[in-house]
Amino acid sequence: MADAIQSRFWVGRLIFVLVMLALVFALLLPLNTQPRGWAAPDLLLCVTLAWVTRRPEFVPMLLVAAVFLATDLLFHRPPGLWTALVLILTQMLRARATGLRNVPFWLEWATVAMGIVAVTLANRMVLAAVMTPQAPLGLTLSQMLTTILCYPVVVVVAYALFGLSRPALGEVDARGRRL
C-alpha cells in the first residue's frame, strides 16, 4: 500500500518533468523565425500553475526553480527574475491549494488569472525600474491574455492525458498524511 502511494508520487513528479521537457523542446524548434504580432501562450507557466493548484505535492519548489531558471537561460530572458516571480506565485497558490479544492472551477481560474496578471505586471515593472530594454507592451499583454485563456484547456488536457484531478476526499500523500 505504502509502496503504491510512494511510486504514484514519484510518477507524478516524473510526468511533470517530462511535460516540461517536451514543452521546452517544442519551443526551441526553429520552425518559425519570423516575428509575429501576437504571442503564443506561455504554456510552461500555465502547466506549472495547473499542477500546483491541483497537485502541489507533484511540483516541489526546487523543481519549479530549476525548470524556470533553465528556461530563463535558454530563452534569453533576464536570468532569475521570472524564476523568482513564478516561485512566489506558486508558493502562494500552494498555500491556497487546500482551499481551492472545494471551490467551483471559475473561481480557481480567476485566482490563477490574477496570479498571471500579477507576475506579468511585476516582471515589466522590475524591468522598467532597472531600465532594461523591454518587449513591446502589446506582445506582453497578448501573451498574458492567451495564457489565461489557455488555463482551462491545459486543465482538461492534463486530466485527459495524465489524470490530473483535484485530490478526492480521503486521499493520502507519500508520508501517509491526509491531503
Binding site: 524548434l29 526553429p30 523565425t33 516575428p35 509575429r36 506582445l139
Partner: peptide, 15 residues
C-alpha cells in the same frame, strides 16, 4: 546550420 530559435516570442534570434 540553424539548430534552435530563441524559444520566446519576445526575442528574435537563432542558434
Amino acid at each position: 546550420v540553424v539548430m534552435a530559435d530563441s524559444g520566446s516570442p519576445f526575442r528574435q534570434s537563432v542558434l
